[in-house]
Simulated assay, not measured.
Amino acid sequence: MTYAILAMACFAVLDTTNKFLIASVPLLMVLWFRYAFQAVASTAMLWPRSGMTMFQTQNFRLQIVRGLLLLMCSVLGFASLKYMPVAEFTAFIMLTPLVVTALARFVMKEQVSVLRWLFVSGGLLGALLIVRPGGSMDTSHAWLPLSLVVSNAVFQILTSHMAKSESPVTMHLYTGWVGAVIASGLVGLGAWTTDLTSFEWALMCLIGCAGTLGHYLLILAFSRAPAANVTPCLYSGIAFATFAGWLVFAHVPDHWARMGMLLIALCGLGAAWLSQREHQSV
């Protein structure tokens, strides 16, 4: 569980630095550096032990689709951070497991209990409290984080399906390289600039390190403990993001936003507890 908490601290650093940087650096350039760093650093760390075998996969097409989905999530995430504070953004991301529940019912035709639907409804109510008119973000841009949550839910469902036959390390490598290759093409269309200060380059490196280390720690967390034990730790990300947002941007969520964030966290924890109970009863 320590790995999961450390991963969420890394993601808080990643999101806060992203928000700070995209105010002065082209979004696509930051996106490219984040994926290029992850791809090269991960490959360099794993190559001495695994060589080309780490790229062996049973479904190359699904690896590409999964990489595209994560890249879409990153673009939507970067865009969302331009219009909403880090803490509220992180709370929104925590809606993903609840949206996965809804997709499981309507797309995969799985049975969903009434209690689980209550948790989903509570989480969505929490999201509405965050993006309400008069809150800390422009409601005209609310579609960005909502689209991100749906995309992330599809990404997680695909990840769960692929994890039955694919190595987590291989999936991590493919997401990095798919994102790096596509972002390289996009940044070459005119988003590249060399007019960056040494401080901005240092922040770009911080983004790369935080993203790579965060994803690696999350892989370790899920490989060493059951998902039901790891998932509650992920909600520590809201606390880390709130602290980082206050430290860097002097932003403190208002009363209604705090209520919404708390409601999302409680519903997410409740859903995790319910999943653990259902798993034990099988």
Rank of each mutant, 00 (worst) to 15 (best):
M1K: 11
T2G: 14
Y3H: 14
C10P: 04
L14M: 15
T16W: 11
L27Y: 06
W32C: 00
F37L: 02
W47A: 12
P48G: 03
G51I: 03
G51K: 04
Q58N: 13
L62I: 02
Q63F: 07
V65T: 12
L70N: 08
L76M: 06
G77F: 08
F78T: 02
S80Y: 05
V86G: 11
F92M: 15
I93Y: 01
L95W: 06
T96N: 04
V100H: 01
R105E: 05
S113W: 03
R116C: 04
G123F: 03
S136W: 01
N152I: 00
F155G: 02
F155H: 13
L158D: 05
K164C: 01
P168G: 13
L173N: 12
I182S: 05
G185W: 08
L186Y: 07
L189K: 08
T193S: 15
T193R: 10
T197N: 10
M204G: 06
I207P: 08
T212G: 10
L213W: 09
Y216D: 03
L217A: 11
F222K: 02
F222Y: 15
A225C: 03
A227Y: 02
A227L: 08
A227W: 05
C233Q: 14
Y235C: 04
T242A: 15
F243G: 06
W246L: 14
W246S: 00
L247A: 14
A250N: 14
A250V: 04
R258T: 09
L262G: 06
L263D: 02
I264H: 04
A265Y: 06
A265Q: 03
V282E: 00
